[in-house]
Amino acid sequence: MSSPEEPGRDAPAAETSRADEPDGARADGPGGRGAEDRAWAPAGVASAQDVRRRLAAALRPRATRGQLLAGALCAALGFALVVQLQATQESGLTQLREPDLVRAVDDLGDQRQRLTTEYGELLATQQALEAEGDQRQEALRSAEQARDAQVLLAGTAPAVGPGVTVSVLDPDARLTAIRVLGTVQELRDAGAEVLSVGDARVVASTAFTDAAGGLEVDGTPVTSPFTIRAIGDPARLEATIGIPGGVLDLLENQGATVLVQRQDEVRITAVAEAPQARVAELDPDPEAAGDGG
């Protein structure tokens, strides 16, 4: 078993101790140095036969007490190795030492603070965006209201609402335009918001004219019988035109038969064409407008 350079029986123990023990307590014999030298000098390496023989000898099972003890120790090593590997795999934090844990907690605290700050900022942004959205919606609503008012005023869309209908029977076409216009004006004064005469929507530019065949509204003949529709407060409208000596009497004085009816729902389907401004345009800067003097 012994190598050529190791004469003594103590040499095996010395050799092994050098390999195993950091302080080399038993390596003071001549074999100790020899082993170290041999490990680094290829000339001193045992021959291939030697190595094979030693391996075979070691692998031959011998049930000595020492061998059994070594086997038990190796079993313990394998057991501990596997247990430690599994423990390391399954739990990261429980393997950490106290300082590492403290650092991890600190890191987490910092991270939490950062995230909290970020959360606050994002919350503020969200609120700002929501407020902006509300403002936009408000603007949109008021714009829609303005548009509806403009559309009703310009008479470009059908309208519906409570009001009165004034049915006029004038078989001899004796009604003059001025009287019908007077009726329309009275209704407007009484708060009528949307008006139509016959099939014509009455808007700001509507013209009432006397033609050869009778009354014309915006160039369209209006023949008897026709209906004046007005959307507004029905009671006020009816009261206004029904005043003794008022428009109703004036119409009847001209030989027409007139019937005024309150309606919960007056539908005015007649529309006027949207006025096209050819020359006028909106002043982009109304504040700066002078007298044009």
Partner: peptide
């Protein structure tokens, strides 16, 4: 590993290993 090296060196000893 030290024991394995001792085996190959031919100087393995059960007692020292344990």
């Amino acid at each position: 590993f030290g024991g394995l090296r001792a085996v190959l060196d031919g100087v393995f000893d059960d007692r020292v290993f344990v």
